[in-house]
Design a protein around this nucleic acid. Structure first.
Length: 204
DNA sequence: AAAATGATCAAG
DNA sequence: TTGATCATTTTA
């Protein structure tokens, strides 16, 4: 399978978020490939979206990368503890992003078990296996994605997304934990694979 | 239900 | 300079 190219990312975050479902996120880490299937995303639509960090063209050191070319990472620390991994979409005039909310572990699972639990995969309970990558803060910990990867080009060999033509039944819901976003609270811009065990919150 | 935990941001 | 916030997770 090939990497998604730049034009894939140069579209509205809603379209990219939906189409990223079922694709494969790869982190080349210490010579190993940590790979997860993207099973849950959220679109942040930029200037007109009160939930977005770039609402009203708000531009700070943190979100600066959203004002650059599409297909780069936007990573930030949340709640002082966890990193959120986003992909910049559209173009400089439309600072949008897609939050990757959950993955299904595909390769490097042994490494993920260590990164999350400091234990071998065989020592994990079933619930702990489902807990490896089933949330935005969990997946960055499992794949060892941190602030040092801020602004990484997804056309590089460090972090990228592989295409897939597999089809899934995609469900839609409001986005998670954006209570501050007023009318945008209810916009149906969260996408996930129906019935997948690694989705952060199956319901809604 | 509530703690953990600290960079970031806008106000002053 | 400071105080509130926060696209979360874990534990209880």
């Amino acid at each position: 399978m090939n990497k998604l190219n730049k034009s894939f990312y140069e579209r509205d975050a809603i379209v990219v978020a939906k189409e990223l479902i079922g694709k494969y996120l790869v982190h080349n880490y210490n010579g190993r490939k940590l790979v997860g299937k993207i099973v849950e995303t959220e679109a942040y639509m930029g200037a007109k979206d009160k939930a977005a960090h770039s609402y009203n063209y708000r531009r700070t050191k943190r979100n600066e990368v959203m004002y650059g070319p599409a297909g780069h990472t936007y990573i930030y620390l949340i709640y002082g503890m966890y990193y959120c991994f986003n992909i910049v979409t559209n173009n400089s005039d439309n600072p949008q992003g897609v939050l990757i909310r959950a993955l299904e572990p595909i390769a490097g699972i042994e490494e993920m078990a260590y990164n999350r639990y400091k234990q071998p995969l065989s020592a994990l309970k079933k619930a702990e296996v489902y807990n490896l990558t089933s949330g935005p803060g969990k997946l960055t910990q499992a794949l060892q994605i941190t602030k040092e990867h801020y602004g990484t080009n997804l056309l590089s060999d460090k972090i990228y997304v592989l295409n897939s033509n597999d089809k899934y039944e995609i469900k839609t819901s409001p986005r998670i934990n954006i209570d501050y976003a007023e009318e945008a609270i209810h916009y149906p811009w969260r996408f996930y694979i129906k019935g997948n065990n690694f989705v952060s919150k199956p319901h809604d």
